[in-house]
Amino acid sequence: MPEIDLGVTPLRELNGALHKLPKDTNETHWVIDNPAGGHAIAAGLDAPLTVEVNGPVGYYCAGMNKLATVQIRGSAGVGVAENMMSGFVHVSGDASQAAGATGRGGLLRIDGNASSRCGISMKGIDIVVKGSVGHMSAFMAQAGNLVVFGDAGDALGDSIYEARLFVRGGVKSLGADCIEKEMRDEHKAAVHDILTRAGINGQIDPSEFKRYGSARKLYNFNVDHAGDY
């Protein structure tokens, strides 16, 4: 099991090594120490690896991740797991802005809070935040699921498309075209499935969540709705 000390090894060397691993490699489990808030750690992975990062990371950790599992034992900077395609990224601490931004697949779990714009423009990713999310989360969210155990800030789901938002706590305000919707059994089942995949099933009853999504009033321009923008 390779163990890399980023206090000694340059980031380029680490990421380059992770990218060059052959498909049949036995080195599928990596440990990274002393990340010290560095940026783009384990970005662009494209293999079923497990990468443990012991400490806080900067911007874009696990950016555009495919297939890999990335465990961050600490907090994450802006854009953790941005544009993730598949795999699993787990932040044990808090996450800064734009966590999971534009993600197209996979699962992002944040055990602490996530700042503003969590899940912005998400395109299929599932995001679980055990704490709360900041303002403008799920802005222009297109697809996927955002599950929030705590509260949501202002303008949740502004200009949302077809993503589904599940919030257990309070919502300070909803954004343009975002409304509360009925939490049917199929949605409870979806939350149950996501929590199971995130490894935290049984802690929370899915029926405690409220569901939010698009009113679809802004899908085609209508001058009578111009004031909603």
């Binding site: 380059g16 940026h39 662009g44 911007y59 950016g63 854009g79 714009r117 912005i120």
Partner: peptide, 26 residues
């Protein structure tokens, strides 16, 4: 959108570009 979702301003963009370079191995 007219603004990028995961960076604001040139200081952030510098870090974003670093990420793109890392993903594509410079």
């Amino acid at each position: 959108a007219c603004r990028h979702p995961d960076w604001t301003g040139p200081d952030d963009l510098e870090i974003k570009i670093q990420e793109l370079r890392e993903i594509t191995d410079w």
